[in-house]
Design a protein around this nucleic acid. Structure first.
Ligand SMILES: [Mn+2]
Ligand SMILES: [Mn+2]
Ligand SMILES: [Zn+2]
Ligand SMILES: [Zn+2]
Lengths: 119, 119
DNA sequence: ATAGAAAATGATAGTCATTATCAATCGATT
DNA sequence: AATCGATTGATAATGACTATCATTTTCTAT
């Protein structure tokens, strides 16, 4: 049931948001179960957690959903998923230059979207 | 006194860490004051807050300390400050390509440092 | 100097997302 | 059906941080 709600959600939803959704179908569910299950989904490779820097853990689908970074409008909150393969390579190089073996990275770009900046 | 402790700290220290330091000189200080003061230092342009993704706000000096990103070893925790001007430009391009005006960005690279990977 | 206003401080309670605990329930296996 | 381990929901606890508020401390105008 939780997996279902997660899969049909728009993405970038938090455990709390999923809880509010699922509660409507089954008010007997406890929110601890949602928190627990989302971690299980991450371990199982079905979900990936993303950190937008607001202290809330959000999840996005992992299957057929390659790595990407995020572009967030600080005004209206919309977020766009982006990838720049050149940047990705340069990040590898940069890490290598410092003797690091790179496992993962986090890149979030904050700004104003087209709509919000035209206001 | 707080500014002093902050300036002579190695950098990337949290309010809590600074509190523990300062308490030794003046046990009468309250930790709320440290939290408040660090925010003031940010507003005053003397400090900048950094988010390593572990839920703790850390501060680093801003004066004569240009923008940079971080490379963190997930084993031993050391962090290296890095900048790659090409990446910085490409981030601007990437945002522009999506119609965004870029305000700031966050980039943290996680991996294993040279020492830790040779173990 | 000094009274009164304004700002800063410390102690402490509160917040919020998340985690731990634990008794109750479920479920597979015998 | 009895058993034992896993899962669940309710709820308490956690940890970083913020709000509150009475008490200093610091300004400011006299
Ligand atoms: Mn990336
Ligand atoms: Mn940068
Ligand atoms: Zn916008
Ligand atoms: Zn290391």
């Amino acid at each position: 049931m939780i997996l279902n709600a997660f899969l049909k959600s728009a993405g970038h939803s938090s455990s709390e948001e999923l809880y509010d959704l699922i509660k409507r179908d089954d008010p007997s569910i406890g929110q601890a179960t949602i928190y627990r299950t989302m971690k299980l989904l991450v371990d199982a490779g079905l979900a990936r957690s993303v950190d937008f820097g607001d202290g809330i853990v959000r999840y996005e689908q992992k299957l057929g959903h390659e790595h990407h970074d995020h572009l967030i409008c600080e005004q209206c909150g919309i977020h766009v998923e982006v990838v720049d393969s050149v940047i990705e390579e340069l990040q590898e190089d940069l890490a290598k230059r410092h003797g690091f073996r790179l496992y993962r990275h986090k890149m979030v770009l904050y700004g104003l979207c087209a709509e919000c900046s035209s206001e």
